[in-house]
């Protein structure tokens, strides 16, 4: 593969953005890229990025599958809030908050609630035929209200060692949150790329009617991706609430649906459905997480944070767009009469 082909790869510019952010942070604070062992686990900037990106990656994975079927799920942030609220209220109300069985039971209950929301979303989209953006908007707006009802409008705080492990624990020196995300990423990749599921999802996204006529159960597939998406959001909700050991219904996962859609788009999956890239989503999630962390490291003034984020995102999206890429190539050719691309 020559240089031109690499530069044209859809993940080229997102990866460049990632490297630029990392290098800029490292220049500003040389210790940033150092990974050391502290208290028996790895510690450093890259470890923080891996741990922090787990939440966004989980949500974005589910979102990738939904978007591949031409859908969109706006309810993920609210599902995260509900997951945290259900799990933590149950742990807080139990006589023994530190017991592993209490924590597992609470998480199972929360997962059941989240699956219920996924089934509801999927039903509205796949069976009733409501536009996905409208169908999932119901829980996006109502979900936080439900979470507030569960926590009684308060921030529920608990002390429970097993629950704290989810976000703050380490296993074999690596953050548990990142391991959970890696495990689910691996499972999703296996399930979609080593079985026919991935192709079926893509075919539904490219043309639902044609794939139905070809014998693909489009309805079941669409329904399933919404359930999967809610389940992943629920796990992300566990990590988020475990991070601060509190269920903050107003703020947990606030606007994460937008970050997740952005991660998917940066990763090269088209909002028009069809082909999807899980690796792309992984890169997109890392870019957005690194961007957030680098704001603190680079010491961007408080008032300029939103602008800085927007500029980086616009730059990546523009550089990725086929029109801009084509213009840039033709300009380069005009400037240099010598052919840039060497025939293979």
């Amino acid at each position: 593969m020559n240089l031109g082909a690499i530069a044209r790869h859809r993940l080229f510019w997102p990866l460049v953005a990632l490297v630029v952010l990392l290098v800029a942070s490292a220049l500003k604070s040389p210790a940033f890229l150092e990974v050391t062992v502290r208290d028996g686990h790895l510690f450093g900037g890259p470890v923080d990025i891996l741990r922090r990106s787990s939440v966004l990656l989980l949500v974005a994975l589910g979102m990738t599958l939904v978007i591949a079927t031409r859908g969109i799920d706006l309810s993920v942030g609210a599902v995260m809030a509900i997951a945290g609220a259900v799990a933590l209220s149950q742990i807080a109300a139990s006589p023994d908050p530190g017991a592993l069985s209490t924590v597992l039971l609470a998480m199972l209950t929360a997962l059941a609630v989240a699956l219920g929301i996924g089934v509801f979303n999927g039903f509205l989209v796949a069976v009733v035929g409501i536009q996905p953006i409208v169908a999932t908007l119901i829980f996006m707006t109502a979900g936080r209200g439900i979470a507030m009802l569960i926590t009684g409008g308060q921030i529920t705080t608990v002390t429970s060692a097993p629950y704290k492990t989810i976000a703050s624990g380490y296993w074999l020196g690596l953050p548990v949150a990142a391991l959970i995300a890696a495990l689910i990423f691996g499972a999703t990749a296996l399930l979609t790329r080593r079985t026919a599921l991935g192709v079926l999802i893509e075919s539904v996204g490219i043309n639902p009617s044609a794939s139905r006529l070809a014998g693909v159960r489009a309805r079941t597939i669409i329904w399933t991706v919404y359930v999967i998406c809610a389940a992943f959001a629920c796990i992300a909700g566990f990590i988020k609430s475990s991070d601060i050991m509190a269920a903050d219904s107003n703020n947990a996962g606030l606007f994460i649906e937008l970050d997740a859609i952005l991660a998917v788009v940066i990763g090269g999956t088209s909002l028009a459905g069809g082909k999807f890239s899980l690796t792309g989503t992984l890169v997109g999630s890392l870019v957005i997480t690194t961007l957030t962390l680098s704001i603190t490291i680079l010491g961007i003034p408080v008032n300029a944070v939103s602008l800085f984020k927007a500029l980086v995102v616009i730059a990546v999206c523009l550089l990725q767009s086929p029109v801009v890429q084509h213009r840039m190539r033709s300009r380069r050719r005009r400037a240099a009469p010598v052919p840039v691309e060497v025939p293979a």
């Binding site: 942070s25 500003k28 604070s29 210790a31 940033f32 450093g44 900037g45 923080d48 922090r52 921030i155 988020k240 991070d243 601060i244 509190a246 903050d248 703020n251 947990a252 957030t292 962390l293 704001i295 603190t296 490291i297 010491g299 408080v302 944070v305």
Partner: peptide, 19 residues
């Protein structure tokens, strides 16, 4: 800014500690 919330207070502090 940590937006008066725990989650953002934690995220920002992590960045401070790295930088």
């Amino acid at each position: 800014t940590g937006n008066f919330t725990r989650a953002e207070g934690k995220t920002v502090m992590e960045g401070f500690l790295q930088a």
